[in-house]
Simulated scan of single mutants.
Amino acid sequence: MAQWLSGTVIANTHWTDTLFSLRVKTEPFDFIAGQFVRLAIETADGKVQRAYSLLNSPGGPEQEFLISTVADGLLTPLLHQLKPGDTVDISQPACGFFILDEVPDGKNLWLISTGTGIGPYLSMLGTETPWQRFSSIILLHSVRYVAELVYQPLISHFQQRYGTQLHYQPIVTREAKAGALQQRIPELIQSGALQQACGHSLDQESQVLLCGNPQMITETKAVLESLGLKKNLRRDPGQITVEQYWK
């Protein structure tokens, strides 16, 4: 049974009408970048809870979460309304194997995400591990609208600190934006347009992480397999690692 920490909301940043970030102060706790916890609120019908990846890197008393509101959801509309000073429960311990410890070595690390799936990657990039292990890191974030390209100052900080070791590639499917691609991720990989835009190959020397919309994950995994990459398993290491709790 999960244990629970009581957290105090420090900030609730609304990026759009349905996309927001919660910053919560808690007692410090250990986790590995890429892991998730459950957020919960007590209601008249009992505790309502759901899993969310930690966006912040380990080591601090403030935890951050990127959340998309589900209109008919039981929890996200409540989280959306939280104000500084409100409380929210956070489960312990953190869980999940979508972590770089589970990823084999490679030349290039592709961090492919849609929507809120960028969260665990920002947590990873705030640690030394990816920069020490991979010569090139490609951070890919696909959204519908420009306003959903969140955490630009943090991404710029990583770019300034690590230079050409990091390539950030936005994709905006329903609006035009300079520097952004506009097609869906599987199509971009299939045509080679993504690899050309990023200046890196997708081959057996690459390690690819997928996080976000389940349909994107399924279709992108199939395209990657057609290029000769395979799912990474402990008993049979490969090149494709998928965030499982989205299922």
Rank of each mutant, 00 (worst) to 15 (best):
M1S: 14
G7S: 09
T16Y: 05
T18A: 13
E27Q: 14
P28W: 12
I32Y: 08
F36K: 07
F36S: 06
A40W: 01
I41V: 01
E42H: 09
Y52W: 10
Q63W: 13
E64N: 06
F65S: 02
L66W: 06
L66R: 08
I67W: 11
L78Q: 10
L79K: 10
H80Y: 12
H80A: 11
Q81N: 13
D86Q: 11
C95I: 12
G96H: 03
F97N: 12
I99W: 09
L100Y: 08
E102S: 10
P104K: 09
N108Y: 14
L111H: 08
I112M: 13
G117V: 03
P120M: 01
L122C: 05
L122Q: 02
T127S: 07
T127G: 05
T129N: 06
T129Y: 00
S136T: 07
I137W: 01
H141N: 03
H141E: 03
S156Y: 07
S156M: 12
H157K: 06
G163D: 05
Q165K: 00
H167W: 10
P170H: 00
P170N: 05
A180T: 05
I185H: 11
I189H: 03
Q190P: 01
G192W: 11
D203R: 07
S206G: 00
S206T: 00
L210C: 00
C211T: 07
G212Y: 13
N213S: 07
P214R: 06
Q215N: 14
Q215M: 14
M216I: 01
K221I: 09
L224T: 01
G228W: 11
N232G: 04
D236F: 14
I240L: 15
